[in-house]
Design a protein around this nucleic acid. Structure first.
Length: 920
RNA sequence: GCUCGGGUGGUGGAAUAGGUAGACACGCAGGACUUAAAAUCCUGUGGGCAGCAAUGUCCGUACGGGUUCAAUUCCCGUCCCGAGCACCA
């Protein structure tokens, strides 16, 4: 019987869907396991073979865990709000909901063909009102809470008001925006508006003025992680800095917890490192410098990590946007300073980055006093100091900071070295080592000792304090776009007021056009009556990450209309055990999700403080492009190996008409009219194409659609081949060349169960040799799956099948467990053979240990052997050899063994993976 | 510039608490079956040298050193490639 994958796959996909085989419910009798994929944004282009890589891996793992007796939650959904659908809507007038719906249908069709074991009854879409109700709800909760630094958690705003009424904010330690101190009396006399403004400074979701990434082409602001090199990631448009009033989430309040809890989760080091960099914790001190513009004296705070270098401070620098600029500019310098500040303002983020090494700046005219040397030092302004970090002002130590050094050289400012023997004539000495000099009481100390000593002294003199700074900023949460969640906020007498829970979801209104209004308001302003009880509703919408921040919780209880997730579901499913997705979300989604989860944890809605216990990053699949070589000025094409003999032009050719780098000439002639009468110069009767690894994209003609692979080889081959391609985490090109090998394996496996055309499986007892083949395979595949080394487990199957061919084995005792083991990888084939073996139900319901127990063999064997020596010794041998053979091997083993001399080996330990430890 | 990864046949890649490097697969070459093709199966396949041959022998995991009886694996230095961060004081 032929291995008819098309028929088999269709049959079992229908069976799974008709019988809801993968539907899961809470089942306290079984251990739970939650496997999650990063849900896709359904783009118009559909899936290419790169997209399912992670999904296949997670599916194999899910199926494997089911075989191991776990109750596996493995859901899928769509991150359906977003810019591309909206941009498309602007161009075509087509409503984003319509295109999104269409794209989702296409995605679903493609996903279904690959045979995933998703519980589709739990599907969610972020653009669905019943889903975004809970996004809006979470926002309202953030609006209704503030961050108490003393208890280190989010608490109710209503409790904060109670404190304000009793004692003002004098004793409150909160993570908040700049807010003045007030007493209870003062609080009680504030107007409603004043109170609202103060509370806004404390809320975790708050409205505040901030410098934002403004993308004029997209007409919206973007978060830091949505911008790279001054260019928007979606669309690639320039981005500029602009001050705007925006909704923000106080992510910064959670910086320390986000950092610390990285230690408790099983993510790759590189990913954790990225998050650590993004959070950017740095320990140091805030210090007060006295500054004077000649008329007035001020205390100016700066942040430094190098308090030890304070004796070398020879000037101060302000960020151009700093509030100090205005206060410290003297009349004589006013014009020059204004010119400089305007010059900085005009620059886009991109220009600033491009000119990183250009040193610019201007003197304010004011001076500060170095608190340790009492020297008068000038205060400058320069764009190399950032307004958003620290206090927006620095003490400059040119001898030991390369940026200060460049600035000092440019403007001829003094450079005072502070470390013995360092040479600062060409460059600064930035390293944190050496012995201090020119530094008063710090002289003779190492840098390591000097830093804390200096901070101690600063605190003693009352001119500063220890301080930890973070690079992580609050997340800007407003987007001036249509296709996103509306804010459940209206403005009553200018006060931002939350909608009551009973009014959720606040649905997106219909509008005529998806563009901003003529006077620059967001598209929602076009809605005829975008008001609540006569008051205007917020016109921006939430960003893409809003809907994806808590979706993993919703899967646990997707149809619950009373809460995001029920207590019962949350306590059973807890958090995601395995999360698979790309690295591109390292500093976006994965930070926001962790923040969101911690917030809900503080409020008691979820029982775990981290959302994703283990995270695996799958690599990207690149395209493998093919080329043909046209001889210039002709319609004649020369095969790759001969192309150097001619003057040719390299032309991309559709990889779908090339096989193993051989061009299908007929298909090529039909591919494009201009090639209809093409002529060819062949090598050995074939046209060989050139190739290159490039990004998979339409314009390179290297996009491979999974549907095509399923048509030609079947989903099981696609699944196994994607795994066989190489390590999961590694990026690698899609190379169709090797796929025949995997397909051949499946056909060989299939034929093990057949004799000629007849299904034929023997009930004979298996031989020792055959047991060894099976158990070697089980051991290997289980270890590999646990380590996400799927490529080597595919190889292990191939080896086992080759070996079974050698023994001519068709014994049920061997083939049945093997089939179960293969089922996570190639579920359709496994189901078909399983049913041919006479099983009534799905192999997906089988529990592996039940089939394997009777065959289990000992893991460790010990063989006493004579040896004397001093070291532990290992020798690679095959597993579970008879004792005599081992001794024999030891006796006549390689040179290295002879070295051991005539001693006594007490025993040799054979551990499962072929290693022998010789102990004595 | 800084921080992580990584350099193994013609190709994708195996093998690291140090122990026969190149599993498995692709490709290639030869063979069987076939009128032929597809499919399938078998054999060979890192390089050099010697041999009719089985085989023997030397060199080989980016490069140069080191530790060790033994190094793809550990240590030091150099060169390349990839990823992330980048005026974060």
């Amino acid at each position: 019987m032929e291995y008819n994958f098309l028929e088999i796959e269709k049959k079992w996909q229908k069976y799974w869907s008709d019988n809801e085989v993968f539907k899961v419910e809470i089942d306290p009798s079984k251990p739970k396991y939650y496997v999650l994929d990063m849900f896709p944004y359904p783009s118009g282009a559909g899936l290419h073979v790169g997209h399912p890589l992670g999904y296949i891996a997670s599916d194999i793992y899910s199926r494997y865990k089911r075989l191991k007796g776990y109750n596996v939650l493995h859901p899928m959904g769509y991150d359906a709000f977003g810019l591309p659908a909206e941009q498309y809507a602007i161009q075509t007038g087509q409503h984003p909901a319509v295109t999104t719906e269409k794209n989702i249908a296409r995605y679903r069709e493609q996903l279904d063909r690959i045979g995933f074991s998703y519980d589709w009854s739990r599907e969610i879409r972020t653009c669905d009102p019943s889903y975004y109700k809970w996004t809006q709800w979470a926002f309202l909760e953030m609006f209704a809470h503030w961050y108490n630094i003393e208890t280190d958690r989010a608490e109710k705003i209503s409790d904060l008001i109670t404190v304000f009424e009793k004692e003002g904010n004098l004793n409150i330690k909160a993570s908040c925006s700049n807010v003045k101190k007030f007493t209870a009396d003062e609080w009680n006399q504030f107007s409603e508006k004043e109170k609202a403004d103060i509370l806004m400074c404390y809320r975790i979701a708050y409205l505040g003025e901030t410098s934002v990434n403004w993308c004029a082409a997209l007409g919206t602001v973007l978060a830091n992680d949505e911008v790279k090199d001054g260019i928007s990631i979606r669309g690639g448009y320039p981005v500029e800095q602009k001050k705007m009033l925006q909704w923000q989430l106080r992510v910064s309040a959670y910086a320390e917890r986000l950092l610390k809890d990285l230690d408790s989760i099983d993510w790759t080091d590189s990913l954790k490192e990225m998050q650590r960099n993004w959070i950017g914790r740095s320990e140091g001190a805030e210090m007060i410098f006295k500054v004077s513009n000649g008329l007035q004296e001020f205390d100016m705070e700066i942040f430094t990590t190098r308090a030890d270098t304070v004796f070398g401070v020879t000037f101060m620098v302000l960020a151009p946007e700093s509030d100090w600029v205005d206060k410290l500019t003297t009349p004589q310098q006013r014009k020059a300073v204004e010119d400089y500040v305007n010059y900085c303002k005009k620059k886009t983020e991109r220009e600033r980055i491009a000119e990183t090494r250009k040193v610019t700046g201007i003197f304010t005219g004011s001076y500060a006093v170095n608190p340790f040397t009492n020297e008068k030092i000038p205060v400058w302004i320069s764009e190399y100091v950032l307004a958003g970090y620290g206090t927006g002002a620095i003490m400059a130590v040119p001898a030991h900071d390369s940026r200060d050094y460049a600035f000092a050289k440019q403007f001829n400012l003094p450079i005072v070295p502070l470390i013995e023997g360092c040479d600062v004539s060409d460059e600064s000495f930035d390293a944190k080592n050496g012995v201090m000099c020119n530094s008063g009481f710090l002289n003779g100390l190492s840098v390591e000792q000097a830093i804390p000593a200096a901070i101690e002294e600063v605190e003693k003199r009352g001119i500063g304090w220890r301080k930890v700074n973070y690079r992580l900023r609050d997340a800007i949460f407003s987007r001036q776009r249509y296709w996103g969640e509306p804010f459940p906020i209206y403005y009553k007498d200018g006060i931002a007021t939350p909608l009551g829970f009973e009014h959720l979801p606040l649905k997106l209104p219909e509008i005529d056009k998806f563009l901003p209004t003529e006077d620059g308001e967001p598209p929602l302003a076009r809605a005829g009556n975008w008001t609540f009880e006569g008051y205007p509703l917020e016109k921006s919408t939430m960003p893409g990450f809003a809907g994806s921040s808590a979706y993993y919780l919703r899967y646990m209880d997707p149809h619950n209309d009373n809460s995001l997730v029920s207590k019962e579901a949350d306590e059973y499913w807890k958090n995601v055990d395995l999360y698979i997705g790309g690295t591109e979300h390292a500093t976006g989604h994965l930070i926001y999700s962790r923040f969101w989860n911690k917030f809900l944890f503080d409020l008691g809605y979820v029982c775990e403080s981290e959302p994703f216990k283990k995270l695996v990053n799958q690599g990207m699949i690149q395209g493998r492009s093919n080329f043909v070589y046209r001889i210039k000025g002709t319609n004649k094409f020369v095969s790759c190996g001969l192309k150097d003999k001619y003057d040719t032009t390299e032309i991309h050719v559709d990889v779908n008409i090339v096989s193993n780098d051989r061009l299908n000439i007929d298909a090529f002639r039909k591919w494009m009219p201009e090639f209809a009468d093409a002529e060819f110069i062949l090598e050995n009767g074939e046209y060989i194409c050139g190739w290159a690894i490039e990004k998979m994209s339409k314009s390179m003609f290297n996009v491979v659609n999974p549907d095509m692979v399923c048509d030609k080889y079947g989903a099981d081959t696609l699944r196994m081949y994607e795994m066989f391609l190489g390590p999961l985490e590694q990026s690698k090109p899609w190379d169709t060349n090797g796929i025949d090998g995997v397909h051949r394996f499946l056909k060989r496996f299939w034929r093990l169960f057949f004799n000629k055309d007849k299904f034929s499986v023997s009930y004979e007892k298996a031989s020792i040799k055959e047991y060894k083949i099976l158990h070697k395979l089980i051991k290997k595949v289980e270890d590999d799956i646990e380590n996400f080394s799927f490529n080597t487990s595919v190889s292990a199957f191939m080896i086992a099948v080759n070996e079974l061919y050698e023994t001519g084995c068709n014994k049920r005792e061997i083939l049945e467990p093997m089939l179960i083991l293969l089922s996570p990888f190639a579920p359709h084939v496994a189901e078909e053979l399983w049913s041919l073996l006479g099983h009534g139900d799905s192999i997906s319901k089988a529990i592996f240990p039940e089939y394997i127990q009777s065959y289990t063999v000992e893991d460790t064997f010990e063989y006493p052997v004579a040896f004397n020596g001093k070291m532990r010794f290992k020798l690679t041998l095959k597993r579970d050899l008879p004792k005599s053979e081992i001794e024999d091997l030891v006796a006549k083993s390689p040179e290295t063994l002879k070295y051991l001399g005539e001693g006594k080996i007490s025993k040799i330990i054979v551990v499962p993976n072929k290693i022998i430890n010789i102990v004595f």
